[in-house]
Amino acid sequence: MLYPLLCIVGPTAVGKTTISVETALKIRGEIISGDSMQVYRYMDIGTAKPSLKERRGVPHHLVDILLPHEPFSVADFQSEAFKLIPQIFSRNRLPILAGGTGLYLKAIVDQYNFGEISANWELREKLREQANSLGNQHLYRKLRIVDPKSAEKIHPNDLKRIIRALEVFLTTGRPISSFNELAPEKRFPLKPLIIGLTMNRSRLYNRINLRVEQMMAGGLEQEVRDLLKRGYSPQLVSMQGLGYRHMINFLKERYTKEEAVELLKRDTRRFAKRQLTLFKRNDKIVWIDLDKYLEQDEIVEKICYFGRNI
């Protein structure tokens, strides 16, 4: 038996949350969050985490499951998602993977084999210290030498993935790119449909700018202050996320608030561009151009039409 899975992906601020909830309401779905930051408690505003009201009674999984200092890898996500999919299906509901973390999508659909790669926390910390003292580019150059295939797919500023790729190589002697798909007999029995949401680039960037302003008005600065008061280090992976590192730099007086906000807008736009570039490489995605629809109901109906045929 193949488990059906509807995936709704796209760049940040394109409207995945609302559309995913509306779709879930229409076709009796439960949402598995495919966002690498929404797993953390106390981090609501900067992650654009949907409120209980916005979820409208639709179950959301892998949201608020960890404290900000707790590690959560793509392998952890894959393991949890593979548990959730049959559980949701057993309730006669459709699993819906919704989010913008491209590697999470690939972990599920392409079923990367992470079982052989255990975390080496001591090595990971040493690599992070190298990045702090010598810069991200130092580690990226190392990666290009030992695993050029992975380096092509990882942005030079994506420190988390650079460190992970180097960690795997230095621990196993094999590039992380060699741990690609599971053998056919080990694959999870899955029948996925991937819907990609897109829109005109200038419209998307305007939405991103507006979202940042709404985050600031909604209390992003105070959220970061509260996290620091709780004792969470600015060096944590979670605290290096978009918005959090910008507010930390403002609070440490490295930027003015206005500079921090403008940098956050810029970096979020760049992040969205990278997301689109990654998703566009995936020929399994069925794209829906949101600019071609006047009403959101039309978009949801189109997704539901595809979803009923999984």
Rank of each mutant, 00 (worst) to 15 (best):
M1N: 07
L2N: 15
P4H: 12
L5T: 07
I8G: 11
K16Q: 01
T17I: 04
I19E: 04
I19H: 03
I19Y: 01
I19N: 03
V21A: 01
T23E: 00
A24H: 11
L25S: 10
L25Y: 08
L25W: 05
I27E: 01
I32Q: 08
G34F: 03
D35Q: 13
D35K: 11
Y40N: 14
M43K: 05
G46F: 03
A48G: 02
A48M: 02
L62Q: 12
H69Q: 13
V74K: 02
Q78P: 02
S79R: 15
A81H: 06
F82R: 11
F82T: 11
P86S: 08
I88V: 05
I96F: 11
G100P: 01
L105V: 05
K106Q: 12
K106N: 07
I108N: 02
V109Y: 05
D110S: 14
D110P: 01
Y112I: 12
N113T: 15
G115I: 10
E116G: 08
S118V: 08
W121F: 10
E122Y: 10
L123M: 15
Q130L: 15
N136H: 10
K142R: 15
R144Q: 15
R144T: 03
V146P: 13
V146D: 12
D147S: 08
K149N: 12
A151P: 00
N157S: 13
D158G: 00
I162H: 08
I163H: 11
A165D: 09
A165H: 04
L170T: 03
L170K: 07
T172Q: 03
G173R: 09
G173I: 07
G173V: 07
R174G: 04
S178Y: 01
F179L: 01
A183R: 15
P184V: 08
K186G: 00
F188P: 10
L190Y: 13
L193M: 13
I195N: 00
M199L: 13
M199I: 07
N200M: 03
R203K: 15
N206Q: 05
R207H: 00
I208E: 02
E213H: 04
A217R: 07
G218C: 04
R225L: 04
R225D: 00
D226A: 14
L228K: 04
K229V: 02
G231L: 08
G231P: 01
S238H: 05
S238P: 03
M239G: 06
L242N: 14
G243L: 05
Y244F: 15
M247P: 04
M247H: 01
I248V: 13
N249K: 14
E253H: 10
E253C: 06
E253L: 11
R254Q: 15
T256N: 12
T256H: 12
T256F: 12
T256Y: 10
A260F: 06
A260M: 01
L264A: 02
R266V: 00
D267Q: 06
D267F: 09
D267L: 06
R269I: 09
R270S: 14
F271I: 02
F271Q: 08
Q275G: 12
Q275D: 11
T277Y: 12
R281A: 06
N282I: 09
D283K: 10
K284L: 13
D289W: 09
L290G: 06
K292Y: 01
L294Q: 14
D297L: 09
E298K: 09
I299L: 06
F306S: 08
N309L: 12
